[in-house]
Every structure is written in C-alpha cells, then in structure tokens.
C-alpha cells in the first residue's frame, strides 16, 4: 500500500511543492474518477471509487499543513494528538485562553470584525509556526515537531470555532 506522498509522487517531507501536488492530484483523478467508469464493469467501478477516494483523502491531507505534519509524524509511528498526551507548554495554554476570552468578548458584543481580526492574527501565528515546523522536520527534531504540530492543530480548531461563531452571528 502506497502512502499519500508516494501516491501523489512527492518527497516525504514537510515542505512540498503545492503546484505539483495539485497537478498530480488532478492527473490521478482524471484517470480514476467514477465518472470515467459509468459504463464499466462492477470490478472496475470498485477500483475507480477506491482510487479516487484515496486520492481525495491524500490531497486533502497533504494540502493542509497541520494534517500534513500529523501525517508525516504518523508515518514515523508518532500520534500527534493522543488522548494520553495532551500536555501543552504553559505559554501556549495562556495564549489559547486569551484567544478563547477574545472570542467570547466579541461574541457577546456581536463584533464580527473583531472576530475577523482575530482570525487574521491566528493565521499569521500559524504561518510562523509552519516555518518553525519545516526547520524542525528538516533537522529531524521529531519531539519538537510533535509539539509544534499539536499547536498547529489547536490553532486550526480555534479558527474553525471562530468561523462557527461568525456564522452564528450572521445567522
């Protein structure tokens, strides 16, 4: 069984060529999408849906930096988010609490632009963290990379929550 990097013909590393990811993903889809096999035999339809589904999953995983980092770690046998391992550095916990408070304040004040700003700030923080992650993976500092990956995943979650609140406010 090929892993997602092999399937999409990309080097197994954190920094990847996103254009190549997209080109290769589309090449695989154009060969395997179920639309190409509407009149084919049952066995061929099955092979098509399996390949197309895997390609979608692989593309989605490698395109998103947090998922890509977690996937890279999983290939090394490391689970970034394990129930037994949720410890976070104190400063990051503080940061998270500040974000949560800011969300709550903006939510109560129905201040969508404050939420938009917060979203922008977290996105910028996330970019910085991705640079750090690429160094950590580059130097094979897997323990540090695991910490960064977990932070990145939490930041994704906070961003998703902000988007949900905005949606709720826009009702």
């Amino acid at each position: 069984m090929q892993n997602f990097f092999q399937l999409l013909q990309l080097p197994q590393q954190f920094n990847i060529d996103l254009t190549k990811l997209e080109t290769n993903y589309r090449a695989i889809q154009s060969a395997s999408h179920p639309d190409r096999y509407v009149t084919a035999s049952h066995a061929e339809k099955l092979a098509a849906i399996q390949t197309a589904t895997t390609a979608n999953e692989g593309y989605k995983t490698l395109k998103n930096p947090a998922l890509r980092a977690a996937y890279l770690l999983s290939l090394q046998g490391i689970t970034a988010i394990a129930e037994t391992n949720t410890a976070m550095p104190a400063d990051f916990l503080m940061q998270q609490m500040e974000w949560r408070e800011a969300i709550e304040t903006a939510e109560n004040a129905k201040d969508i632009s404050a939420l938009d700003n917060l979203l922008g700030n977290i996105r910028a923080e996330s970019k910085n963290l991705q640079h750090l992650l690429s160094e950590q993976f580059g130097q094979h500092q897997l323990s540090d990379a695991t910490d960064s990956t977990r932070k990145l995943i939490f930041m994704e979650k906070v961003q998703a929550d902000i988007r949900d609140v905005i949606e709720e406010l826009e009702g």
């Binding site: 090449a27 035999s41 066995a43 098509a48």
Partner: peptide, 28 residues
C-alpha cells in the same frame, strides 16, 4: 466473473494512474 476480475481491475487502475502521472510530468 466480476469478482474474479477485481484484482485485475485494481492493477489496470494503478497502471492507468501511473500513465496519467507520467503524461503530466512529460507536459511539464
């Protein structure tokens, strides 16, 4: 008959994906 060709279909799919990827790389 369908069941007996599942492995064959999967191999053909792999070959077809490889061809598509090779084609794209030639393009670039």
């Amino acid at each position: 008959l369908n069941r007996s060709t599942e492995a064959f279909a999967a191999r053909r799919m792999d070959a077809s994906v490889k061809r598509a990827l090779a084609g794209k790389n030639l393009d670039s």
